[in-house]
Simulated assay, not measured.
Amino acid sequence: MRRATVVGVGAVLALAAVAASSAEEAAAPGEAGTRPMPDFLDRGLWRVFTRLDRRTRLDVHDVSGRDRRVLWPPRWQVCTQYPAAGTALDRRTTVMIGVVRKGETCPPRVRDARR
């Protein structure tokens, strides 16, 4: 029964990402295959999954130093992102997102690097 729940949640995440990316692709002007990187800093990780194209390679990791697995996106907030907001994304770009649990503060070394 627990396995079915995990699969169900994964299916919901996938459907939300497909719907959001399809809407964004239809509305996004510009070159075919490129779009600007959104600004995700201090936002919820869920926004990353719903705003990026489903084909975008994504690397999400915990920057708190605890090396926790990121399993439930709504419980995490973004501290770092690469590439920077406004940078052109294409299908070969791997987006790297550093996160901490919501309610925690970003580590000092990460906050200083963002300024």
Rank of each mutant, 00 (worst) to 15 (best):
M1A: 12
M1I: 04
A4F: 10
T5H: 11
T5A: 14
V6F: 05
V6Q: 14
V6I: 13
V7A: 14
V7I: 13
G8C: 06
G8N: 14
V9K: 15
V9G: 13
V9E: 07
V9S: 15
G10H: 08
A11V: 15
A14R: 08
A14C: 09
A14D: 10
A17E: 12
A19K: 13
A19D: 03
A19S: 04
S21R: 03
S21I: 01
S22G: 13
E24I: 10
E25G: 02
E25A: 13
A27E: 00
P29M: 07
E31L: 12
A32W: 06
G33V: 04
G33M: 01
T34V: 14
T34H: 09
R35W: 04
M37G: 09
D39G: 09
F40W: 08
F40I: 00
D42N: 06
R43Q: 14
G44A: 08
G44D: 12
L45N: 09
W46D: 00
F49E: 13
T50L: 01
L52K: 11
L52Q: 01
D53K: 01
R54C: 03
R55M: 03
T56M: 12
R57E: 15
R57Y: 12
R57K: 07
D59E: 15
D59T: 14
V60K: 00
V60G: 11
V63A: 04
S64I: 09
S64R: 04
S64P: 09
S64Q: 11
S64L: 08
G65I: 09
G65K: 10
G65C: 01
R66M: 07
R66S: 13
R68S: 07
R68C: 03
R69H: 06
V70F: 13
V70T: 14
V70P: 06
L71D: 04
L71Q: 08
W72Y: 13
W76Q: 04
C79Q: 11
C79P: 03
T80L: 15
T80G: 13
Q81G: 04
Y82S: 14
P83L: 12
A84Y: 09
A84C: 06
A85Q: 13
A85D: 02
G86V: 11
A88H: 02
L89D: 05
D90E: 01
R91P: 04
R91L: 12
R92T: 14
R92E: 15
T93Q: 15
T93K: 13
T93H: 15
V95I: 08
I97K: 01
V99F: 03
V100G: 02
V100T: 07
V100N: 00
R101N: 08
K102W: 01
T105M: 10
T105W: 03
T105H: 11
C106F: 04
C106Q: 05
C106A: 08
P107A: 11
P107K: 05
P108R: 07
P108G: 05
R109D: 15
R111L: 11
R111D: 00
A113P: 06
R114T: 07
R115L: 07
R115F: 02
